[in-house]
Simulated scan of single mutants.
Amino acid sequence: MKTKLYIDNGQFQAGITLKTEMEPEKNNMALHACVNPNDVIENRRNLAVSLGCTLEDFVCANQTHSSNMQKVSLADKGRGAERLDTAIADTDALYTLDSNLVLCGFTADCVPVIFYNEVKGLVGVIHSGWQGTVKEITRKVFSHLQQAEQCDPADFHVQIGSSLSQERFEVDQDVYDKFKALGYADEFMYYNETTRKYHIDNQLTVKQQCELAGIPLEQIAMDTTCTYDSPSGFSYRQDKQCGRHLSFIMRK
């Protein structure tokens, strides 16, 4: 299985690609972290076929661990799909009100957030590594959508994708302090006396940000697969040369 589908309800289709030993570059989907760009493009084309669309329907961003978001439209079709220099610059969240656009996010331990709003026909993806989490990118996106797009938080459905587990995400005091400063992440952290490291649950912190944004708990799903421990996971912490998962969502 090369893809895990999270949502496939006729109107919305969303999921995450998986590391697969038999595929070129193990099914790596990232042009910014690859050996052969043509292999990545071929992997993306195969994904497009499985989704019943073409690679030209993809929209990708150059992610920078920012809290920047971008509204995209059909005019952005194909950006970043085959070339890095056409991707949406310096952006870690994409959303659209247009159908038949595949919004893409890339991760290898960071938390992918995929969401849709049935009432507005709006879909989006967020890349929230620990830096994005302490910048509260997820909370900012939903706040923006409430104000700029008149979305009701109660209408959002969120899927938090697989990422680095709390057990594997060990950090020093400086990162702990940043999470501590959020004021609501204390219960998602613990200190290991033996290693003198802090362990943080980035997923649950992001989930908390969704709840603080007003999204009903029962409309937030979470894939707790650890990208470090799973054979189908790309983990930057485990291998600095690893590929990337592609999280996607499309409204048909």
Rank of each mutant, 00 (worst) to 15 (best):
V123C: 07
T96A: 06
G121D: 06
V113R: 06
D109M: 07
I126W: 04
P112H: 11
Y116F: 13
L97D: 01
A89I: 15
D98N: 07
V111H: 06
I114W: 04
T107H: 14
H127M: 07
V113E: 13
F115A: 08
V125A: 07
I114H: 06
V111Y: 09
Y95V: 01
I114N: 00
T91H: 09
L94E: 01
L94Q: 02
T107S: 15
S99I: 14
A108R: 07
S99Y: 13
V102P: 01
L101Q: 03
I114S: 03
D90W: 13
C110S: 15
I114R: 05
Y95N: 08
Y116H: 02
V102R: 06
D109W: 09
G129D: 11
L103C: 06
H127Q: 14
F106N: 14
H127Y: 11
L97E: 08
D98E: 13
S99T: 13
V123F: 00
L97W: 01
S128Q: 09
K120G: 09
P112M: 10
D98A: 10
I126L: 13
Y95Q: 04
I114Q: 02
C104T: 10
N100M: 11
S99M: 12
T91C: 11
V102M: 04
A108C: 08
G105Q: 10
T91M: 05
P112L: 04
N117R: 09
T107P: 06
T96N: 08
G105H: 10
D90H: 11
K120M: 09
L94M: 03
G121F: 02
Y116M: 10
S128D: 00
V111P: 07
V113K: 02
L122K: 06
L101Y: 07
S99H: 09
I126C: 04
A108D: 11
V125M: 01
C110E: 11
C110H: 14
L101N: 00
G129R: 05
D92E: 01
A93E: 03
L97T: 12
D98L: 15
G129L: 03
Y95C: 07
D98S: 05
T107C: 13
G105S: 15
C104N: 13
D92Y: 02
T96L: 08
G129W: 07
K120H: 08
Y116S: 05
L122F: 00
C104S: 10
L122R: 01
V111M: 08
V111F: 05
